Measured scan of single mutants.
Amino acid sequence: GPMASDKRPRTAFTAEQLQRLKAEFQTNRYLTEQRRQSLAQELGLNESQIKIWFQNKRAK
């Protein structure tokens, strides 16, 4: 629909990254900035991508 703007492409996470994020989520529903930074480095992701993933996951 018209609401779907092309400005922010959805990140396609790899299965491996998703597995890691899910495991982290089961341990911590809320990430500290430090955890998020190390996860971002570990997974080669953007911190904001991880932050948003957690927000979306909590919203469900």
Rank of each mutant, 00 (worst) to 15 (best):
R10A: 15
Q41P: 01
L18W: 05
L43D: 00
D6K: 04
K7R: 14
K60R: 08
T27E: 13
G44S: 08
A15E: 09
E42P: 00
Q34H: 13
E47P: 09
R20N: 02
Y30E: 07
S48K: 14
K51R: 10
A59G: 07
D6N: 10
T27Y: 07
Q49W: 07
P9T: 03
T14Y: 02
Q41L: 14
Q37S: 11
K57E: 11
T32N: 13
P9S: 03
P2H: 12
Q49A: 15
S5H: 08
P9W: 06
Q34N: 09
Q26S: 11
K57L: 06
R36G: 12
K57S: 08
E24G: 01
L31S: 02
A40Y: 01
A23Q: 15
Q55A: 12
S48G: 10
K51E: 07
F25W: 05
A40E: 03
R10V: 15
E33V: 11
Q37P: 02
Q37A: 12
N46W: 06
M3Y: 03
R20H: 04
F13Q: 01
P2M: 12
D6P: 06
P9F: 04
F13A: 02
Q41R: 11
Q17A: 05
A59I: 09
I52P: 01
T27C: 08
S5V: 08
L31N: 02
A4N: 11
E33I: 12
K7V: 08
T14N: 07
K22P: 00
T32P: 04
G1A: 08
T14G: 03
E47Q: 10
S48H: 13
M3L: 12
L21V: 01
S38I: 13
R10P: 15
G1T: 07
T32D: 12
K57Q: 13
L45A: 05
T32K: 05
T27Q: 11
R58Y: 05
R36F: 05
N46L: 12
Q37H: 10
W53M: 01
A23M: 09
R10K: 15
Q41C: 09
K51S: 07
K22N: 09
F54T: 01
E16T: 13
I50T: 01
Q55D: 07
R35K: 14
L39W: 01
E24K: 01
Q19N: 13
A12D: 14
R58F: 07
I50F: 01
D6G: 10
F13E: 01
E33C: 11
K60P: 05
A4T: 11
Q49Y: 12
P2F: 05
N56P: 02
K7S: 10
T32H: 05
Q17V: 06
A4I: 12
S38G: 10
L31W: 03
Q19K: 11
Q37V: 09
A40G: 04
G44I: 03
E42C: 04
E42M: 04
W53C: 02
N28W: 04
T27K: 13
A4G: 14
A12S: 15
A15C: 08
K57G: 05
Q41D: 12
K51V: 11
T27H: 13
G1D: 12
K57F: 05
D6I: 06
R36Y: 09
A4E: 14
Q41I: 13
L21T: 00
A15R: 12
I52V: 09
G44E: 05
P2E: 13
P9K: 10
A15Y: 12
P2A: 13
G44M: 07
K7Y: 06
K7P: 08
S48P: 04
L45N: 00
K51T: 09
R10C: 15
Q49L: 12
F25G: 01
L39T: 00
Q26E: 12
R35P: 02
Q41S: 12
R20I: 08
R10L: 15
L39R: 00
S5T: 09
L39G: 00
K51G: 07
A23F: 06
T11Y: 15
N28I: 03
A40D: 00
R10N: 15
K57R: 14
K22E: 07
K57Y: 13
K57C: 06
A59Q: 10
R35S: 06
Q34F: 09
R8V: 10
Q49T: 13
R20G: 05
Q49S: 12
I50Q: 00
L39H: 00
P9D: 06
A12W: 15
Q37F: 10
E16Y: 12
D6E: 13
K57V: 06
P9M: 03
E16C: 07
Q26T: 07
E33P: 15
A15F: 11
N46M: 09
N28D: 09
G1V: 07
Q41N: 13
E16F: 14
L31T: 03
T32G: 07
S48V: 12
A15S: 11
I52W: 14
R8S: 08
E47R: 04
R35G: 05
R29E: 04
F13L: 07
I50D: 00
G1F: 14
S5I: 06
R36Q: 14
Q37W: 08
E24V: 06
F25R: 02
G44Q: 11
G1N: 11
Q19T: 12
R35I: 05
S38A: 12
F54C: 01
F54V: 02
F13I: 06
E24F: 02
T32W: 04
R36C: 06
R58V: 07
W53E: 00
A40P: 00
Q55I: 11
R20V: 07
L39V: 03
E16A: 12
L43C: 05
W53H: 01
S38E: 11
Q19C: 07
P9G: 06
R20Q: 06
T27P: 01
D6F: 01
L31R: 01
T14S: 10
K7Q: 12
E33R: 14
F25D: 00
P2I: 11
A23I: 08
S48L: 10
T32V: 03
W53P: 00
Q19I: 14
Q26H: 12
R35E: 13
R29I: 08
Q41H: 12
L18K: 11
R8N: 10
I52L: 11
K51D: 10
S5W: 01
Q49K: 09
Q41V: 12
I50C: 01
L39E: 00
E42F: 03
T14P: 01
T14K: 05
S48M: 13
R29D: 05
T11R: 15
E16P: 03
A4W: 08
K7G: 13
A12C: 13
N28T: 09
L21W: 00
E47I: 09
Q55N: 07
Q26N: 10
K7H: 12
K60T: 09
N46Y: 13
R58C: 06
R36E: 08
L39F: 03
R8F: 11
Q49C: 12
G1Y: 14
N56H: 15
R10H: 15
A23E: 12
A40I: 02
R8I: 10
K60C: 07
Q17E: 02
P2R: 01
W53N: 00
I52Q: 12
L45F: 02
L21P: 00
A12V: 12
A59K: 15
Q34T: 11
L31E: 08
E42S: 05
N28F: 04
R35M: 10
E16I: 12
R8G: 13
R58E: 05
Y30K: 08
F54L: 02
A59W: 14
E16W: 12
A23W: 06
I52S: 06
E42R: 03
N46D: 10
R36M: 11
R29Q: 06
R36N: 08
L21G: 00
L21D: 00
G1C: 14
L39Y: 00
R20S: 04
P2C: 09
I50K: 01
A4L: 11
T11E: 15
Q37M: 11
T11W: 15
T27F: 13
L31D: 08
N28K: 05
Q19Y: 06
L39C: 01
R35N: 06
D6Q: 06
K60H: 11
I52R: 15
N56Y: 15
G1S: 07
M3D: 13
G44T: 04
I52E: 10
F25T: 01
F13R: 01
E47H: 04
T11V: 13
K7A: 07
P9C: 12
S5E: 12
I52F: 05
P9N: 04
R8L: 11
A4R: 03
F25H: 02
P2Y: 05
T27N: 13
Q19F: 11
F54A: 01
T27G: 09
T32F: 02
K60A: 13
A40L: 02
T11H: 15
R36D: 02
R58N: 11
L21N: 01
E33H: 14
E24N: 01
S5R: 01
L45M: 07
